[in-house]
């Protein structure tokens, strides 16, 4: 989320005392730093980093996507007067390729190299990002990024992000719109991301 935050508020004990996380989660969290400029801590299932202009909450365990949404919505419901201008939901996937040849083939399909051979030696695709809209969601901006995976080799990394800007009054300063928008779009974005990644891989395999 992009907005104007007070990082010192965001402490595991604060979340625990409000019942937004379990007391055990709060007690066993690992705090990297909590200062006026930044708060950064991690529990077994999520990491929260808050800067004065940015809040990021993430988990890499799909069984916690629901609780992650609840936590984000809960925090912003309590801090409803906090100015938040943008919010994004992202999901990541890493796919392992059977062979390096297959991996290169996918890269060539996504970005044919004929155009590049006369210009540079050994052209290779580092990253590709497409921007668009999810059907029926005019207020969201969709970004799909494809890169070689850093986690699995040879592998493909797919990142699907949907970005929402506060409306109808983008100048009104509060976070009241966030919990509702999360509730409305979260499940759809998570499912859509899975479908996009899966369909993209299927299409590349067929093409």
């Amino acid at each position: 989320m992009v907005g104007s935050f007070n990082p010192t508020i965001f402490q595991p004990r604060w979340l625990g005392s409000l019942g937004l996380i379990r007391a055990e989660d709060a007690e066993n969290s690992t705090i990297a730093i909590i200062q006026a400029q930044v708060a950064d801590f991690q529990t077994d299932w999520f990491r929260l980093q808050v800067l004065q202009n940015r809040l990021l909450l993430q988990s890499i365990d799909a069984t916690h996507y629901g609780p992650l949404k609840d936590l984000a919505a809960g925090m912003l419901a309590l801090l409803s007067h906090t100015p938040v201008s943008r919010m994004a939901m992202t999901r990541w996937f890493h796919y392992k390729m059977e062979t390096a040849e297959e991996w290169h083939e996918y890269g060539h399909k996504l970005a044919p190299k004929e155009l590049w051979f006369p210009l540079i030696e050994g052209p290779g695709l580092r990253s590709m990002m497409m921007q668009g809209k999810r059907k029926g969601v005019p207020d969201g901006n969709l970004f799909i990024k494809v890169e070689p995976s850093l986690l699995v080799q040879p592998g493909l990394f797919v990142e699907v992000t949907e970005d929402f800007v506060k409306w109808p009054d983008p100048d009104a300063e509060d976070a009241k719109w966030v919990p509702g928008r999360l509730e409305k779009h979260w499940d759809d974005v998570m499912k859509y991301a899975e479908k996009v990644a899966h369909d993209l891989l299927e299409t590349l395999a067929r093409k």
């Binding site: 365990d61 799909a62 796919y95 392992k96 990142e159």
Partner: peptide
């Protein structure tokens, strides 16, 4: 062709950046 999805349903046993960090 078989792809082996290693999507975010798997917790990787290491320090993990999802990708671009």
């Amino acid at each position: 062709m078989i792809t082996l999805p290693l999507n975010s349903e798997s917790v990787m046993d290491q320090m993990v950046t999802p990708q671009s960090g």
